[in-house]
Structure formats: C-alpha cells, structure tokens
Amino acid sequence: MLTDTDRRILRHYQHDPMLGPADLADRAGITPATCARRLDRMQAAGIIRANRAVIDWRALGYEVEVSLRITLDKTQPRAFDEFIATARNVPEVIEIQTFLGRVDLRLSVIARDMAHYQQLYRSAILDLPHIADIEALMHVARIKSDEVLPV
C-alpha cells in the first residue's frame, strides 16, 4: 500500500506539515511534482486526514484538565447516542472516547481554574443524559502527547 518513498514523505511531513512542496520533496529525495502527486494520492486515500492548527489551551487561560470516566445507564436503548450528542455541545469537552468494559466513555474537560471546573461540572456535566456513574481524574502532568507515527 505505501511505498518506501511514501513513508519518507510521511516521516518528514508529520514532523513539519508547514514545509512547502519543494522543501518536502528535497528532504524526501524526490522531485516536487512527484511529491505533490503522492501527497494528493495519500490525502485521497485517507492516509493523510487533515492539516490543522494545534492550539495550546493553557496559553488561552485554561489551567485545569480533568478526565471523566463515565458509565451509562445501558437500560436506555439510545443512551450512548443521546449522551454523545449532548456532550459534543459542551465547548469545554475537548475529547470524547468510547470503551468496551466497565467504563463506557471518557471525557476530557478543560477549565480556567477549579472554580470554573466546579461550575462546569454542576451546570453541564451532571446534566448529561443517562449517567449511571462518574469518576473524575485530575490531570497532573502530560508526559507524552505525540501524534507522530512510526512510518
């Protein structure tokens, strides 16, 4: 599926997606036209999903991150769908993950400070539908957060 050339392009591209096609081609050891064609092909195939800005939410004044482990009342047939649809509308929920096992979902929630988190918890989180159990884990440090893949 991926050639060695594709992998070379991806290795350089994921480290610096702002590289222009000529610079990326030079680092990958190919011509700019070949590089552009291969990037287009990998985007069309869904290998490269997006280019995006990663914003440091701490720089915007958010100092608190909490992971909420949530177990839903699964006696309700639409519990997952209704919970997820409602949770998506809470701007401070920056990530939603689903699981198999005792915990059904994990929400990552950011807040300016503990008072703001407490207000969010009471006014937005506890209002989410079908919650049977909730456990909060306060983030202390992010040891690794890297989207670079070993290609």
Rank of each mutant, 00 (worst) to 15 (best):
L100N: 12
R88V: 13
I9Y: 13
A59K: 14
A132H: 13
I96R: 05
G61C: 03
R78N: 14
D56I: 08
P17R: 05
V90C: 03
S67C: 09
A25C: 07
D146V: 10
I47N: 00
D73I: 00
A136C: 10
G20P: 10
L126S: 10
R122K: 15
A124V: 08
F83M: 04
N51P: 05
P17S: 11
G46E: 02
A59N: 07
M42F: 02
Y62N: 07
A141N: 15
T75F: 05
Y62H: 10
T31R: 15
V148S: 06
R37P: 00
A59P: 05
H130T: 02
P17M: 11
E63G: 04
A50R: 04
F80P: 01
V140Y: 11
R102L: 10
L68C: 01
Q14W: 02
R38F: 10
R58M: 08
S145V: 10
L126H: 12
L128S: 04
V148N: 01
A85P: 00
I84A: 12
I47G: 00
R49M: 08
T86R: 15
H15C: 09
G20T: 12
K144G: 10
G46K: 06
R58N: 09
I134G: 03
P129L: 03
V66P: 07
V54N: 03
H139W: 12
M1L: 12
P17T: 12
S67M: 13
A79K: 00
W57Q: 10
L128V: 04
Q118K: 13
L120Q: 01
